[in-house]
Design a protein around this nucleic acid. Structure first.
Length: 651
DNA sequence: ATACGATTTTTTTTT
DNA sequence: AAAATCGTAT
């Protein structure tokens, strides 16, 4: 039996015990939002709602896993069948059942952004779009434009007019590419991330029986991080909720940081208009941070015009003021960070309670080097993710071929690994294979070999060797196939072309182990595309490991540490100059706010005064505008929300 | 024409 | 660090 009286405060308990209907919860940073959601799910299950009739949409799959395992702890038994995970995950689950109605085969494959970029590139090449003048957008930019258009449901024309006006002359070719891209995906039986959402909505929209089924199915729908949903996602939610109208959305407009993905905090702002009978709850008690940290964060976010009015109250005892640290340059910043980490660690704080946060992955380089030099263990949570590494994707290409013999991208990638087989030859070989009834068998024919010029014979032979071994295994368990790929040529390939071959081999072994928990290639591949890291699955293992976390602010969402050190708080870096142009200053300020509110006990804001690494010699940097504007507060109150340190004497 | 290596540039953030 | 570009060898 769960003790709601003991475990929750009044604000939280009201949300948990509220019967149903549309509910909006505005949950400030550190206010126990996850706790509240967890208890509500537990409560619903305890009341006898069948788990498979609950939908819990979260921002990452890990968040869902964590919450559900806590729910299981609370009610003391396993629960199976809850629809928990990201929108993309749930879309996938739905579409596997209904994709046929939309013209896709049920075994459609999910492509990531790299594949998508490549596919767009192929479209452009085949359409003979002349990139004259050199100002034509690259494939990934076009991909972004298309993606934004899908997620916001705004026409390509308007997107380009408003956010990419310098491409306005290319509207026509871009539109043509977009429609070709769409056709291509359909004929190749592929969906990109956006398609998952798009077609989920589509299947609900076009087929009333499907919509009725799911609207009837979901007795309760809970959406976490609602401020980071986009128009498409909101529409899906609204359609699913028409049946029972038990829809609870939880979010904090001040923490909306994904506009580049089409996220729109207006989903939160407009919720009360859409559901006039909704009840609004606010969680405004912050349990996480000291009053000093919260004070600084509040001061900062108050500069934003557009937001729900709320006041976060600190309940913790007074602590130390945040520290503003200026360093001579980047190296000194790294040095300071490492030094301070050691001191803090020596004072009794475990390394796992310390995080270094930054706006962009490349900001972390110097700190990485310094921590390595000093032997301080750390984990990076930004940049290329495990499954996006080229060697993982190489191996995956073979798996994809086995699942879908028409997977153009996979064939080309696998073939292109070998010597003397470049884009042109790979294209020719693919054309040949695509025309065959049995592509697998044709790989070993004389005609296949003759498709390429003689210089490629050697490379082709090696491909055949690997492929022969792989196809002998067939599509059984993924780990066996991966092992076969490695043992029959790929490891050799790695050693020939990479100096860090052994590190990559280790990755692949980890990859293989990870795959062994899947019983079919199909399952494995479709999971893979939607998974961020290997750790996604294992929820609690990280807790007992002892290392500092280096993370982008985006990745730090929802997490907390005793000590947070923000680096690169320099104008142009935080806010990132590029991003201000695209997404606006307010979103960058929200990022600053998110970063600051991750800290429980101590917050350090570091900024280097000089940046030497750019081409034009030494550039002097000024502190972030978000820091300067905090100082204006001092003029009225006579007290700065931070204290100043200098890492060393400047003169 | 094609592949590939050297050089240059350019680094957002993510499902 | 990775991608895009350029020049050279085949």
């Amino acid at each position: 039996m769960i003790d709601y009286q003991r475990d929750l405060n009044n604000e939280q308990r009201k949300v948990v015990l509220e019967e149903g209907g549309p509910i909006l919860v505005i949950a400030g940073a550190g206010s126990g939002k996850t706790r509240t959601l967890t208890y509500r799910v537990a409560r619903l299950v305890e009341k006898g709602i069948p788990p498979e009739r609950l939908l819990l949409a979260t921002f990452t799959n890990k968040a869902a896993h964590t919450m559900l395992s806590r729910v299981e702890n609370l009610i003391g038994r396993q629960i199976n069948g809850i629809w928990g995970g990201t929108f993309h995950h749930c879309a996938h689950k739905t579409l596997r059942m209904h994709a046929r109605r939309l013209g896709f085969a049920p075994n459609f494959s999910i492509i990531d952004s790299e594949d998508s970029r490549q596919l767009i590139n192929t479209c452009m090449k085949e359409m003979k779009i002349d990139v004259k003048g050199g100002k034509f957008p690259k494939a990934d930019v076009i991909g972004n434009i298309i993606s934004l258009s899908v997620n916001t449901e705004i026409s390509l024309e308007d997107i380009i007019e408003n956010r990419y006006d310098y491409f306005i002359n290319y509207l026509e070719p871009i539109t043509a590419i977009a429609s070709e891209y769409k056709k291509r995906k359909l004929s190749l039986n592929m969906m990109d991330f956006d398609d998952l959402l798009f077609f989920w909505r589509e299947v609900l929209l076009r087929f009333p029986d499907v919509r009725d089924h799911y609207a009837e199915l979901f007795l309760h729908i809970l959406v976490d991080e609602y401020q980071d949903t986009n128009r498409l996602q909101a529409e899906i939610v609204n359609m699913l909720a028409i049946g029972h109208r038990n829809l609870m959305v939880v979010g904090d407009d001040s923490q909306s940081i994904y506009s580049f993905r089409g996220a729109n905090y207006e989903n939160i702002m407009n919720f009360p208009e859409l559901y006039p009978d909704c009840r609004i709850f606010k969680l405004e008690t912050n349990y996480r941070s000291t009053p000093e940290i919260l004070h600084l964060a509040n001061l900062s976010i108050n500069k934003n015009e557009n937001q729900f009015q709320k006041t976060l109250r600190a309940v913790r005892d007074r602590g130390v003021r945040p520290v503003l640290v200026s360093t001579r340059d980047v190296l000194e910043q790294a040095d300071f960070v490492a030094q301070r980490i050691l001191e803090i660690n020596r004072s009794g704080v475990p390394l796992g309670e310390i995080a270094v946060l930054y706006r962009a992955h490349f900001h972390s380089m110097e700190v990485q080097m310094e921590l390595t030099r000093r032997g301080i263990p750390f984990e990076i949570r930004s940049g290329i993710r495990f499954f996006e590494q080229s060697h993982i994707k190489d191996v995956t290409a073979f798996l994809r071929i086995l699942v879908n013999p028409k997977d153009e991208l996979a064939w080309k990638r696998a073939l292109g690994l070998y010597e003397k087989i470049g884009p042109a030859t790979a294209e020719k070989l693919w054309r040949f294979l695509a025309a065959q009834d049995d592509p697998y068998a044709s790989v070993f024919t004389e005609d296949f070999r003759k498709t390429a010029s003689r210089s490629a014979t050697n490379g082709l032979g090696r491909f055949q060797e690997t492929f022969r071994a792989v196809s002998r295994i067939g599509s059984t368990s993924p780990n066996l196939v991966i092992e076969a790929i490695m043992q029959n040529g790929y490891v050799d390939l790695l050693r020939e072309s990479h100096t860090d071959a052994s590190a990559r081999e280790e990755d692949l072994i980890q990859f293989m182990n990870f795959s062994s928990s899947f019983s079919s290639l199909e399952d494995f591949l479709s999971e893979l595309a939607l998974l961020a890291s290997v750790n996604d699955e294992t929820v609690e293992t990280d807790e007992n490991r002892e290392h500092v976390v280096l993370s982008s602010i985006h990745q730090a969402k929802g997490l907390e540490w005793q000590i947070v050190m923000m680096i690169w708080c320099s104008e142009g870096m935080m806010p990132l100059a590029r991003a201000v142009k695209e997404g606006g200053e307010e979103e960058e300020r929200r990022l600053f706010y998110v970063a600051a509110t991750r800290a429980k006990d101590q917050l350090y804001l570091c900024y280097p005064l000089r940046d030497y690494a750019r081409g034009m010699g030494n550039l002097s940097l000024s502190p972030s505008r978000f820091i300067l504007e905090l100082a204006s507060y001092a003029r009225s109150s006579g007290e700065l929300p931070y204290e100043r340190w200098q890492a060393c004497d400047l003169y």
